[in-house]
Nucleic acid binder design. Structure first.
Lengths: 115, 115
DNA sequence: GTGACCCATACCCATATGGGTATAGGTTTC
DNA sequence: GAAACCTATACCCATATGGGTATGGGTCAC
């Protein structure tokens, strides 16, 4: 068991820098694989494999166009990630020292609850 | 080469479900390792290793307290993730069909630019 | 000091991963 | 139909990963 949740997990899909780069590139519109590979500075099979992961989690869609295949962005899957991290927003808005005090207060309250 | 950017990468740190769970648990305040392991339903060494990853990317801090070690949240590192995904917000707000048209327009404009 | 307790690390294992090369399928062009 | 082109997949390899058990260091209670 090398990694519990492997495929079909958006968090895992965007953990890989090249895949993030692909998503950014696709913000500008649909692109064929070869072009993406060139912009990424990698090989065509390399790009294809990353695109496959992105496709499997639904972050990109592909469309046949003649002898090339155009990949397009479908960023809806990023929304849960945005929302999950947003759940911590209150914790980075406060200065860390204040945050630390806040956390200690919570902890103390929690412990008193248990008594 | 199993994974290009391994450690010291927040995206990778939160790719693992148990680590995300740890962060959520720590929102309620500092906790000792054993308690975290119990709540996670895993072993103590398992929790320790995940906490180490989180510590290395700066998402948690640890503090010795007697014979136990309290881990606390430092969510500031999640901000870049939130902002990165936020860069795609315009793409999930539109309906996908509209988005598709939008992307095609962009693509067309880009190609015309190149002429 | 001895025992109980908490935790990090050392190993070991099975597997997933990313990268590269070779190749086969499908499409267009001539 | 042959050649050129684009892309996906099949392999192979080195390595990172997560999980588990064993263990050692540090601390507290007595």
């Amino acid at each position: 068991m090398a990694r519990a949740a492997t495929t079909s997990d958006v968090f895992n899909a965007i953990a890989e820098p090249q895949r993030r780069d692909l998503l950014v590139l696709l913000r500008a519109g649909e692109r064929p694989v070869t072009e993406l590979a060139r912009e990424l500075g990698t090989t065509q099979p390399g790009a294809s494999k990353h695109l496959r992961v992105l496709r499997e989690v639904g972050l990109v869609r592909d469309r046949r166009a003649g002898r090339q295949r155009l990949y397009g962005l479908d960023a809806r899957g990023l929304r849960p990630v945005h929302e999950w991290t947003g759940g911590f927003e209150g914790f980075w808005h406060a200065s860390f020292d204040r945050l630390d005090a806040y956390v200690r207060d919570l902890e103390q309250a929690r412990q008193e609850e248990q008594r």
